[in-house]
Design a protein around this nucleic acid. Structure first.
Lengths: 70, 70
DNA sequence: ATTGAATGTAAAATATATTTGACATTATGG
DNA sequence: CCATAATGTCAAATATATTTTACATTCAAT
């Protein structure tokens, strides 16, 4: 899976560390790190919580138009 | 937990049964049923697959219908 | 009234998301 | 430099998403 640079960038725009964001949404730092690195398939509730904390929507941070262009 | 009526309606609009949708996205009928009934916290990958099958986006089908915690 | 498709539900098992604890590396400021 | 925050990574444990199997109900058309 690709890195989630949109998430990383939105987090940076709010001046939050991975740890800050993790605490805000109630998960561990490792989970946020893994999501940004793209190793992960998080739950929709976690994605939604992250979006709300960062003032973004699911489409903003988690929608990929690019899968399987054919 | 709130039912996902937007999903149910989008599926109906494509004339797909829960079983049809489940097969299209590679999960079981029970999983699709549970998501529509709102018992569930599916993964983002599954939500994305459902959206693509139904010609909708994450915001269309999964934004703001369950605000509940883990 | 009966058949069959679609849906709702549930318990136990499996797969995987997430945690815990730890250590390494890369910034960044003092 | 030195210290410390921030990030990357990993193995083992726990929590939970999903499957499997099974049965009940609803509803549309015989």
């Amino acid at each position: 899976m690709a890195k989630n640079l949109k998430l990383k960038s939105a987090r940076a725009a709010m001046d939050l560390s991975q740890k800050d964001l993790a605490e805000a949404v109630g998960v561990t730092r490792q989970t946020v790190n893994a999501i940004e690195l793209g190793d992960y398939n998080p739950t929709i509730k976690l994605c939604t919580a992250i979006c709300k904390t960062l003032g973004k929507t699911l489409n903003d941070l988690f929608w990929e138009d690019d899968i399987n262009a054919n």
